[in-house]
C-alpha cells in the first residue's frame, strides 16, 4: 500500500495525468508529448530553444522543411488533404515568398509558431491548454483544449490550425485530435530525446542549412553567436512578443 505521505509531488502529478487520460479518452492510450507533467518536467528552465532562419539560404523552390514536419507530426497527408477544404487544412509550417515593395528583392522563408516569450495564445486560452514550457516551447495540451479557437484569434502569425475532421492513419508518436487546436511544438519530443527539430534536419540534408536551432540562453551556442554577429528581425516586432524564432537577411 502506498503511504500517501511519502508520495512525491511528481507522483501525484503523474497519477493526475494518468487519470485525466483515462477519463477523457477511454480505451485509447494517448501520449501527449510535452503536455504531460512527466514531459514538462523534462523541459529545462535553464534553456530557451529557438530558431534562426537565414532567408538568403532558403531556396524558393524547396519545401523539404514542410514535408519533414508533415511526416514527423503526421499532418497534411495526401489522404487528409483530399478529404478537406484547403482553407480548413492544417498548416503547422508554411513557406512564404516575399517581395520587398521598395527594392523588389525576393526572399523565401518558412513560417511556423514563433514560440513567443510573451505568447498571446497562452494569455487568452481559458483552460491553460495553450501553454509555454519552461524551455520556451509554446504548444497545446490536447487533453484540456476545448476547441474554442480563441488562441487562433490571438495569434499574429496564423501559426495555428484547428482539426476540422476525424483523422485516420494517425502517426503514433504525434497524436492529433478532432476538435482541438494544434501547431508547431518545435518537435518537443525530439528535443526531449536530444535530437533537433525535423525541419532543421531536413534543411541541413537539403544542403541549405537555412535554419539554425539552439539554446538562446546559452551565450556560447551557435544560434546566440549568430544573433550577436548578424542583424536579425522578429516578425511583428512592434508587438514586443519576443519570439524565439528570428529571421536574418529577410
Amino acid at each position: 500500500m502506498t503511504n500517501r505521505a511519502e508520495m512525491t509531488r511528481r507522483d501525484i502529478l503523474k497519477s493526475g495525468a494518468a487519470a485525466s487520460t483515462l477519463t477523457l479518452a477511454p480505451g485509447v492510450t494517448l501520449m501527449a508529448f510535452g503536455g504531460t507533467a512527466e514531459a514538462s518536467s523534462r523541459a529545462d528552465a535553464g534553456k530557451r530553444w529557438g530558431l534562426l532562419i537565414d532567408a538568403s539560404k532558403c531556396a524558393a523552390d524547396c519545401n523539404d522543411c514542410v514535408t519533414a514536419c508533415k511526416v514527423e507530426n503526421g499532418w497534411g497527408s495526401q489522404t487528409e488533404l483530399e478529404q478537406i477544404d484547403p482553407e480548413q487544412a492544417p498548416e503547422w509550417i508554411r513557406k512564404v515568398t516575399l517581395r520587398d515593395t521598395s527594392t523588389g528583392r525576393e526572399v523565401s522563408a518558412p513560417v511556423m509558431c514563433q514560440h513567443c516569450e510573451a505568447p498571446p495564445c497562452v494569455d487568452v486560452c481559458p483552460t491553460g491548454a495553450s501553454m509555454k514550457r519552461e524551455d520556451g516551447i509554446v504548444l497545446v495540451d490536447k487533453h484540456i483544449c476545448i476547441g474554442c479557437r480563441y488562441c487562433m484569434m490571438a495569434c499574429p502569425f496564423k501559426a495555428r490550425s484547428f482539426v476540422h475532421a476525424e483523422i485516420t492513419d494517425q502517426n503514433v508518436q504525434a497524436p492529433r485530435g478532432k476538435g482541438t487546436v494544434e501547431s508547431c511544438n518545435l518537435c518537443a519530443p525530439r528535443i526531449d530525446s536530444g535530437r533537433i527539430p525535423a525541419c532543421v534536419e531536413a534543411c541541413e540534408k537539403a544542403g541549405h542549412s537555412a535554419i539554425l536551432f539552439g539554446d538562446l540562453k546559452d551565450p556560447d551556442s551557435a544560434i546566440s553567436k549568430a544573433l550577436n554577429d548578424y542583424d536579425s528581425v522578429a516578425l511583428r516586432a512592434d508587438l514586443e512578443l519576443d519570439p524565439g524564432v528570428r529571421y536574418t537577411n529577410l
Binding site: L24, V122, C125, P126, I144, C145, I146, Y150, V163, G179
Partner: peptide, 20 residues
C-alpha cells in the same frame, strides 16, 4: 466548441490571464 464534451474542463480549469 470543438470539444463541447469537455465543458467541465472549462468550468474547472481556469487560466486567469484569459478574458474568456
Amino acid at each position: 466548441l470543438g470539444r463541447a464534451d469537455r465543458l467541465i474542463v472549462a468550468m474547472t480549469t481556469y487560466n486567469f490571464s484569459s478574458v474568456f
